[in-house]
């Protein structure tokens, strides 16, 4: 095992390309009897752990609370570090709302993020199924290439990709932010392939006897059975796309097309250090663009963290 690319290829060779799970992939210890996640720690140990976790949680949550609090303060009070503002200045929100098109940015981000996440989930699943189900000439080489591209720094292809979009007259649009996802993404292909490999092959043999074609096998059998992994893929991409600044910096010129991160950077440049030094405006804008995502996350966190944990367990 010298490289990341070795284990999957070896595993694939060893099982001859069936849907047998490869046992020696990185990051996935072999499956055996699992430890019970609840238990073992006695009442004392458990209390100590919970206290520790609460302390850490305060550190994790406090910046959000600080931000929300500061967003309601007058300019001179922003750094007073009081959790409850001495003077409530709700006007900050009105001001930032008037100064910049926040709603447009959030709308842009929602559209771009959904487009990016939907396309990458569907395309990666299709490709992953191709690698998991079939045995065909060149498969191991191609899959090694998939793994290889995970290690390629994105900056290597950044400039020529810009030139491609420029040549297509799309370099100042939102299209480059999601369109490459139509072709799948190496990490998700790898992840989903692992899942598809875990499905018993008999399912597909039975479907074939019933006259199902390959597309039906994928769409009706494999995809629904791997829903947790598809959800994880979707959410990972939502997170990546929602928080990305690099591509919007390269491609978006018109403030009306800005996504949330690009817009927030513009707010910082205008109102923050080197700008008007009105940090309460920056804080208000930050709250408006982060809090909805946090609420959405809390609402669907069950799918989320549990899905990720399951993904880790699958061999």
């Amino acid at each position: 095992m010298t490289q990341l690319s070795v284990p999957p290829a070896q595993g694939a060779q060893a099982d001859g390309g069936g849907l047998l799970p490869a046992s020696d992939d990185p990051g996935q210890p072999p499956r055996r009897r699992r430890t019970d996640p609840r238990g073992t720690a006695g009442p004392v140990g458990r209390t100590v752990r919970i206290i520790g976790l609460i302390a850490v949680s305060v550190i994790f949550l406090y910046p959000f609370l600080w931000l929300i609090s500061a967003s309601f303060k007058p300019t001179q009070d922003v750094f007073d570090n009081a959790l409850i503002p001495h003077v409530w200045q709700l006007h900050n929100y009105v001001e930032v709302w008037k100064a910049v098109p926040l709603l447009t940015w959030v709308g842009n981000s929602v559209v771009v993020t959904l487009a990016a996440a939907v396309t990458v989930t569907v395309s990666s699943a299709i490709v992953a199924f191709g690698f998991a189900y079939f045995r065909f000439p060149g498969r191991n080489v191609l899959f090694a290439l998939v793994i290889g591209t995970m290690m390629l720094p994105s900056v290597v292809t950044m400039v020529p990709q810009y030139l491609i979009w420029n040549w297509m007259h799309l370099a100042s649009s939102q299209v480059p932010l999601w369109a490459p996802n139509l072709f799948g993404s190496a990490f998700y292909i790898f992840l989903l392939r692992q899942f598809f490999l875990g499905l018993p092959r008999e399912l597909f043999e039975a479907a074939r006897v019933d006259g199902a074609n390959y597309w039906k096998m994928f769409w009706r059998i494999a995809a629904p059975l791997c829903r947790p992994a598809l959800i994880v893929t979707f959410i990972f991409e939502v997170q990546a796309s929602w928080t990305d600044l690099v591509k919007p910096l390269i491609y978006l010129r018109d403030p009306k097309l800005y996504t949330v991160p690009r817009g927030l950077k513009a707010v910082l440049d205008q109102f923050g250090d080197g700008g008007e030094m009105r940090w309460e405006i920056v804080c208000a804008a930050s709250v408006i663009v982060t809090v909805p995502m946090i609420i959405a996350f809390f609402v669907c966190q069950r799918h989320f963290t549990e899905g990720i944990a399951t993904t880790g367990n699958k061999g």
Partner: peptide, 28 residues
């Protein structure tokens, strides 16, 4: 690992900053 049901709640809290745009992290 060994805190039972509460684990899910803390996991969510630890994951919140990951969902926060890096620009906001830079501002913070």
């Amino acid at each position: 690992l060994r805190v039972g049901r509460a684990s899910g709640f803390f996991r969510t809290i630890f994951y919140l900053p990951v969902m926060t745009p890096s620009v906001a992290v830079g501002i913070l």
